[in-house]
Design a binder for these strands. Structure first.
Ligand SMILES: [Zn+2]
Ligand SMILES: [Zn+2]
Ligand SMILES: [Zn+2]
Ligand SMILES: [Zn+2]
Lengths: 163, 163
DNA sequence: CTGCAAATGTTATAATGTTGCAAATTTTGC
DNA sequence: GCAAAATTTGCAACATTATAACATTTGCAG
């Protein structure tokens, strides 16, 4: 799994996409999971930017290329991608984003810029530790952590001409 | 703002409700905000248990007592209660829970039991600190944190006869 | 009392997500 | 290869969550 650039900074984003797709293919191969054309296309749409995409956005994108899909098509593809850790769902936005650490067994934490919409996924051992300690202090067994921080990203803080 | 019992353990829950309502009245008085009958009733419904309540659940409860309300009535009451920090929205459940620390200027973190549905709101300086540090490390300005931990609560871990 | 602002009522609609079953495709066992 | 089985996709309807727009009522100040 290759290192990737920070989404805030200009970067060769095509490389993000191709890395993500290559990783996805490898992960699916390892699990004998079928990354079918629809599933791969949905993953590709999601990776087209570092901004989360709604299910119905994806549906519209599929429609725009002539694939007359219905909601279950998209949700099933998303379920598959979620199951294999290739995308994450952002609960506070009802939207989906490509996983920047696919295959790494991690707990996603997300920094969501309110101005430009860009999402950075953190690999956060310190935060995960703090959350697990807090849960342990209450004798609570944590299974899934939703951690989403809305705010302003460095780029939007710096200049005020953002997309 | 008074201390409250852990929701997992049997407790005098009527006290939870009356404390919450008393706190709410005081907070609204301080802010010259009108805790109208509808708003107070919605808050009371939400506090009827330590399990989050959906907007349409509240709508049905209002309907059950003869108040023939429409969705905007409930959502407006919820907006008001959110605005003054009297309830929290649980993004991962699309539901609402009474704030256990109203008026205390805190960042809510929630332990959500998947078996019994009970939610415990933590006051978590350590976790908040870790999140803020992680954001700062990325030069990100955090404004709102969604932190929801789904898992199994101590009561459901102990006995396996839960509600 | 009058007029204004805030709150509520009402209707319709948007946005998000699911169920159930049929058809097609892929895999598997032989 | 080939038929049975399993997986995936198509499709129609529906369920849930949330908002928009505008009318009406209520609380309150002057
Ligand atoms: Zn990129
Ligand atoms: Zn991830
Ligand atoms: Zn209680
Ligand atoms: Zn429980």
């Amino acid at each position: 799994m290759t290192e990737r650039a920070l989404p805030y900074r200009p970067h060769n984003h095509d490389a993000c996409v191709s890395h993500a797709l290559a990783d996805a293919r490898e992960i699916c191969r390892q699990h004998n999971a079928r990354l079918t054309p629809i599933r791969e296309r949905v993953l590709e749409f999601i990776w087209q930017s570092h901004k989360p995409l709604g299910a119905y956005d994806i549906l519209a994108m599929l429609g725009a290329e002539g694939h007359n899909a219905a909601p279950p098509t998209v949700y099933r593809a998303l379920d598959f991608l979620l199951q294999y850790g290739l995308v994450h769902r952002i609960a506070s936005l009802n939207a989906f984003i490509g996983c920047a650490h696919a295959g790494e067994h991690h707990r996603g934490a997300f920094l969501i810029c309110r101005q430009c919409g860009t999402v950075l996924e953190l690999a956060t051992p310190a935060v995960s530790k703090a959350v697990e300690d807090a849960a342990a202090a209450e004798a609570f067994l944590p299974e899934e952590v939703t951690l989403e921080v809305a705010g302003v990203c460095p780029r939007c803080l710096g200049d005020n001409s953002n997309a």
